[in-house]
Design a protein around this nucleic acid. Structure first.
Length: 284
DNA sequence: CCACGGCCTGATTC
DNA sequence: AGAATCAGGCCGT
């Protein structure tokens, strides 16, 4: 089924820029588990072709439009960022790269797992949790596993998670899972809360500091002003904006939110993507 | 509020 | 070859 898309959308950059960890590319197709179903997407003239199971394709279309962030007016976002020379260049390099609107739970666990790790390992860890504690779903002879629920991971416990290679992050995931499963913290309503309130709630969870919280806020909780500062962003800000001025990461986040404004998160992701593709040494 | 060391682990570098 | 270092940080002191 065709999802008609008239808005700018670069599917490859959007799905593979490091904001989500479960998309796989297979020729022209991308596949993943979304909303509990297996989904295949590919870019075609006029939009995006969709296949999915077990849901009907028709019912998945509005969910995917939402997930892909097509509700956001990118032109308006760009308008606020194009004055900046570095951003202008990055935006021209990857026009149509969007911020996804992911499931907050999966996003939370994924970024807890990301701390002091690397993309291949994070991806392995997440996939291991899914194959071990998730449910298999099949489409066109392809099997993927659903992301485990808070209850699943709380029940699994930290030892089992360590067995999957999470290292010290296993304790964080187990504890955070218990907190969510118990109902002490409810993630979805944070979409309606202010940035500051949601940030405070998230950082009360095990293994969630300022950086991880800002990732969850930006990629799943409707906070486009969120600005996660990781090593890549730290270097980018140092090199291009701060001219060597010493600043803590939390202060960098505050500086950037103030400097880039309402859509600081988009600025963040374009800088991040650009920096990462160019590699560490290439850009001075 | 900031600075610092410790923490799993696997790949890369020296 | 074996030891540091780094990788999309967080926590406690």
């Amino acid at each position: 089924m065709l999802i008609p898309v008239t808005e700018p959308l670069d599917l490859t950059s959007t799905l593979l820029s490091g904001q989500a960890f479960r998309w796989r590319q297979d020729g022209p197709w991308f596949h993943c588990i979304i909303f509990g179903g297996i989904v295949k997407l590919r870019e075609v003239t006029g939009g995006v072709e969709l296949r999915c199971a077990p849901q009907a394709e028709g019912s998945m279309v509005p969910l995917l439009r939402d997930y892909l962030g097509l509700g956001t007016d990118l032109e308006q976002v760009y308008e606020t960022l194009l004055d900046d020379e570095r951003l202008r260049e990055a935006i021209h390099s990857y026009p149509g790269m969007r911020i996804l609107r992911q499931d907050p739970w999966e996003c939370l666990v994924s970024f807890i797992c990301s701390s002091a790790s690397n993309i291949p390992r994070i991806t392995r860890n997440i996939e291991a949790m899914c194959t071990t504690f998730g449910r298999p779903v099949e489409l066109d002879g392809l099997t993927r596993h659903t992301f485990p629920t808070p209850h699943d991971l709380a029940e699994a416990g930290s030892e089992a998670l360590r067995g999957l290679g999470l290292g010290y992050r296993a304790e964080y995931v187990a504890t955070a899972s218990e907190t969510i499963a118990s109902g002490k913290v409810d993630l979805m309503p944070l979409r309606e809360d202010s940035y500051e309130v949601a940030l405070g709630t998230l950082t009360s969870l095990a293994g969630v500091g300022d950086k991880v919280a800002n990732c969850v806020l930006l990629f799943s909780l409707d906070k486009p002003e969120a600005f996660p500062v990781d090593v890549w962003i730290e270097r980018a800000l140092q090199d291009w904006y701060l001219d060597g001025t010493k600043m803590s990461r939390k202060n960098m986040r505050r500086w950037a939110s103030n400097h880039f404004g309402t859509y600081a998160g988009y600025a963040n992701h374009y800088l991040f993507h650009d920096r990462r593709l160019k590699g560490r040494k290439a850009s001075a």
